[in-house]
């Protein structure tokens, strides 16, 4: 299985999906890793009013990961000493010196971050006018897969999706409708209407990918559960593909010493 190492020399450009919007609620804080020759360890957070921001995941004070921090109002606080940062990365408050106005030089390193079409996106470059998808779907789930992105794209082209709600679950062949740098849309025909699934790829390492999956809007809970189970099965087959090939090789070596 070829892992796509080549793209990792320079690192990815443009917007990178890091979470489904529903998984980063108001006052939510999470860590996101962006692959590259120098992988980035980021904190991504959402303020009370809903604004999303991304910083280097270290407090300028003592290097503590800000992803352990907490959000009050429009500020992210470090868990270690409670230093507070605004969405621009600037330090607003130092609890050990409550009457001091922190100098503007104390600043977390920021990245461009936006909540678009149900996905939180991060970019290494501040002015990135990459076209982002407009799918209008509903967040299903994010899941990590121990496989590179190229392999996963190939396997998705051959998948079958559950499309009906009856107990004898109907599966329909899916086809890739569109494909972009970060994402692809799968389409499967059911009796009533087409089921669409959008998969966004976040490379973690050359052999590890986070998939952020959205579906057509307003699907019933039963179908979403079926699709979530499809995602589990898809991951299982992707991760066990190599194992099956390897064990087959081992068997053939045993029979032909």
């Amino acid at each position: 299985m070829n892992a796509d190492h080549s793209e990792f020399v320079e690192g990815p450009d443009g917007w990178i999906p890091v979470a489904l919007s529903v998984d980063l609620p108001e006052a939510g804080v999470m860590r996101a890793v962006i692959a590259g020759a120098q992988p980035l360890d980021l904190v991504v957070w959402r303020s009370r009013s809903g604004q999303v921001s991304a910083f280097d995941n270290r407090c300028p004070h003592r290097g503590m990961r800000l992803s352990f921090g907490f959000v009050r109002g429009e500020r992210l606080s470090c868990i270690y000493h409670g230093w507070q940062y605004g969405e621009d990365g600037g330090c607003r408050h130092i609890p050990a010196h409550p009457d001091m106005t922190p100098p503007t030089s104390i600043c977390a390193n920021t990245y461009a971050c936006q909540d678009h079409d149900g996905v939180v996106w991060v970019s290494k470059g501040a002015d990135n006018s990459d076209d982002l998808p407009n799918f209008g779907g509903q967040g299903l789930r994010s899941l990590s897969v121990e496989r590179g992105e190229t392999v996963l794209r190939k396997l998705l082209a051959e998948t079958h999706l559950p499309v009906s709600l009856t107990s004898d679950m109907q599966m329909a062949e899916a086809a890739i409708a569109t494909q972009t740098r970060t994402s692809l849309v799968l389409e499967a025909r059911s009796d009533a209407k087409n089921l669409r699934l959008m998969v966004h790829f976040q490379k973690i390492t050359p052999d590890r990918t986070m998939l952020h999956v959205q579906t057509s809007p307003e699907l019933p809970a039963e179908l979403r559960i079926s699709l979530s189970r499809w995602a589990e099965r898809f991951r299982w087959s992707a991760e066990n593909l190599g194992t099956m090939i390897n064990s087959w090789d081992a068997t053939s070596q045993e029979t032909h010493p």
């Binding site: 009013s49 959000v71 009050r72 109002g73 429009e74 500020r75 507070q84 408050h93």
Partner: peptide
Amino acid sequence: IHRLHDMRDEDGG
């Protein structure tokens, strides 16, 4: 398992 300090929401912003 740290305290959820965001529940003390009296300042910020």
